[in-house]
């Protein structure tokens, strides 16, 4: 799995590419823990090229969401592939997260 970082104005962009599976759990956990401690801005996670996620991956994102909430910041997801959307839906996580249809909508949400 690749994790690519960029910014759009002040907004922090994180692109996840490939598979957030068991072998990549530690890498992703490490990344998000540090990123969320450090950030003073909202984060948009672009999942366009994220092909796979399991419950450990979900756990990382939900911990991230909890910690962003504590800082009064937003963690916004966008561009979820169908299967990934199903994983969120069946876990009951969809309505907890701020999930936007596309990148532009996510950026607009992050600006508000």
């Amino acid at each position: 799995m690749e994790i690519l970082e960029s910014t759009e104005g002040n907004i922090q962009i994180v692109k996840l590419e490939g598979r957030l599976d068991a072998p990549n759990t530690e890498k992703a956990d490490d990344f998000f823990s540090k990123k969320i401690v450090a950030t003073q801005e909202n984060i948009v996670v672009d999942c366009k090229n994220l092909d796979y996620i399991n419950s450990s991956g979900l756990r990382i994102l939900i911990m991230g969401l909890k910690n962003m909430n504590k800082k009064n910041l937003k963690l916004i997801l966008c561009n979820l592939q169908k299967n990934i959307k199903d994983v969120f839906h069946f876990s009951g996580f969809t309505n907890l997260f701020n999930v936007e249809y596309d990148f532009e909508a996510a950026i607009n949400e992050a600006k508000n």
Partner: peptide, 11 residues
Amino acid sequence: PVEEREIGGIG
């Protein structure tokens, strides 16, 4: 709400 969610058992 997210703060009260139990994460275990989802798998």
